[in-house]
Design a protein around this nucleic acid. Structure first.
Lengths: 128, 128
DNA sequence: TGTATTATTGCAACTTATTCGCAATAAATA
DNA sequence: TATTTATTGCGAATAAGTTGCAATAATACA
């Protein structure tokens, strides 16, 4: 199952690389210059995730968001990090904040999906 | 908008009270003795959440799970806690593990949805 | 350089979770 | 007991994500 290079793949990867935020399929489709089918975008994204080039975040809206970040670039860096969902500008971003936890005896952790919700620094500026 | 007591409401609340795990609408419907409409269950659950009697967890499967736990009983206890989703027995439970985080300047946190994934203590016992 | 192999794509249909409008029902209250 | 309106059931709608299939195109190889 060798991967092939296609314009679609490249376009989506570019978009994610240049975005500071995690993007949903929806957002990706809108931001792309070229028209790419919904199902294709999902397939491309799922492949990126399989290949550990991108990670998937599920927000409390139940939707999937995709991001490339520092953490993705060094897969040795196993530590999970928090994500932040701003209710004001409706975006999700990776925080450089590690997730610390101590689970009870016998629990084996294999993954983490941690999203904080609130107002991001940009949107908090409203006051002055 | 005063709340009324109904058999439905009582049944769902009982179920959640006696369950150690967080339950999805689906699970609730199956476990109830009486037949309650899907939409009604959602409405009851959403009302419970509004009234802070129950809290809602969104797992990486994108589904909502509902739970009553110690934390729910003392709303003054603002601290968020982790949830654990066992991939083996496919359940979600509240952990007595607080979520600690330090967000960058300017960020205002109003909520948290933190789910750890893996194998719970019961399912880890397989070995011995 | 031409051809075969098979990963990738687009399309349409499907699944699943959740919500919504509306009319009927039933708590609470006077 | 009558009135008010929260709650329910039903069916339909919405939205996110997946899947089957045939067509297309990237890669490998003669």
């Amino acid at each position: 199952m060798n991967r092939r290079n296609t314009p679609t793949k490249e376009a989506v990867l570019n978009l994610l690389s240049n975005s500071k935020k995690a993007l949903s399929q929806d957002a990706i489709e809108k931001q792309l210059d070229i028209k790419i089918n919904r199902a294709t975008i999902y397939r491309v994204l799922n492949r990126f995730c399989e290949d550990d080039m991108v990670h998937r975040i599920v927000a409390e809206d139940g939707k999937q968001y995709f991001a490339i970040c520092k953490k993705c670039e060094k897969p040795e860096d196993v530590q999970y990090h928090f994500h932040f969902r701003c209710l004001s500008c409706d975006t999700i971003e990776c925080l450089q904040v590690p997730v610390n936890y101590a689970v009870p005896n016998g629990y084996r952790v294999q993954g983490a999906n941690c999203v904080l919700t609130g107002t991001c620094s940009d949107c908090s500026q409203v006051v002055g």
